[in-house]
Simulated scan of single mutants.
Amino acid sequence: MQLPIDFQPGWAPADIEDASAHRFLFLQGALVVLRDGDGARLPDAAYRDLPIGVLHSVGVLDGRACHMAELSDAELPEGLEAVPLRQLFNRLPEALLAVAGRAQQLLDFARSHRFCGACGHANELFDEGRARRCPACGQVAYPRLAPAMMALIKRDGPNGRELLLAHGARFPGVIYSALAGFVEPSESVEDCLHREVFEEVGLRVKNLRYFGSQCWPFPHSLMIAFVADWASGEIVADPAEILDAAWFHIDALPPLPHQITIARRLINATIAEVAPDHPALSVYGAG
């Protein structure tokens, strides 16, 4: 999920009387939306009497303020539902999903940093609301981001391009994707890539090429994606991490991640390098 170019992060106090604002309201970690046929939309001003705790600013999207808050009551009026963000793919516009991801991360940060992790004193707002500071010991905390590498490994055999795709133990459903793992202390992203690939599937890779990055608020990851060439080794999957891994020819791909994900864009782009008109790109949603 990518924040749109016309989104401006903001920290100023939210104006609860602003009826035009986008409202990102969360109940037990799920976004509150108004059912709209097969889709969904954010609650409008008609729902401003919901049991909102503290209303915070998220920023401004296309000239409209964006507010976020957690609801203090589990009862929702008729027509509203609380839906995890993953289940809103294809139901809510991507720009709103991206801002919702930011809102969820900021609310999680506010909830988990009410008190200082060093001395236990109550924190206060700091740096115009971007951070929390302990007035007793001075410790400052900013929202946490967890960098994670993603690696799509390819090889070109006698029958054409093949991609190494894996079904991770934590993937929802039967989805095959690129390999991924979190960066550990003292590692570069490249070090992490080599280590994770070898640990998860027993392969060595070469020719690492940066593709792009994506915020992934589940709960606070930053995915950094690379393409790599197979160098050596046979697939030996780590059963604790990988349920299945195999080389797939681009004419015979397994179920892939949603097109909103950087994994899907990475797979599409790697196919398009050798087959820009390949029918698989339209089937799987190129771009």
Score class of each variant (00 low, 15 high):
A225I: 02
A148L: 12
E124H: 07
D44M: 03
H194D: 04
I224N: 08
N159I: 01
G59I: 00
G79R: 01
P135Q: 12
A21D: 03
F182T: 10
Q214G: 04
I16H: 12
H278G: 11
Q28M: 04
A110E: 14
N123S: 10
R144H: 13
Y284D: 06
P276D: 04
F89Q: 01
P239Y: 01
F211D: 08
L85Q: 08
L71V: 01
Q104N: 15
G117W: 08
Y176R: 04
A65M: 05
K206P: 00
H121V: 06
K206S: 13
M149P: 01
R64Q: 08
E199N: 13
A252K: 04
W216M: 10
V189L: 15
P4A: 10
G10L: 05
E75C: 04
D18C: 10
H278L: 08
R114E: 14
L203V: 09
R144T: 15
I5G: 13
G59Y: 05
A148N: 12
Q214L: 10
V99S: 06
I242K: 00
A166W: 02
V236K: 11
Q28D: 15
R209F: 00
L50T: 08
F171T: 13
L243D: 05
I250A: 11
Q214R: 04
E184H: 02
E78N: 06
D229F: 02
L253E: 07
P77K: 09
Y176H: 14
D18V: 00
E124S: 12
E17V: 11
H67E: 07
L193D: 03
R133E: 01
R144D: 15
D277R: 14
P257I: 01
H278D: 11
L55S: 01
I175T: 14
D108A: 15
R195T: 07
A252T: 11
W11G: 05
A263C: 11
G63D: 06
A103I: 01
E234D: 12
E234M: 06
Q104H: 15
S112I: 03
N207Y: 02
G120N: 02
L125N: 14
L80R: 02
Q259N: 14
V227C: 13
A118E: 14
A275S: 13
A30R: 15
A69D: 05
M68N: 01
M68F: 03
R86T: 05
G39L: 12
S188H: 09
A231E: 15
P77C: 09
E162L: 09
M149F: 02
V227Y: 13
W216Q: 12
G79S: 06
E234Y: 00
R48Y: 00
A46P: 00
G212L: 08
L253F: 02
H56P: 00
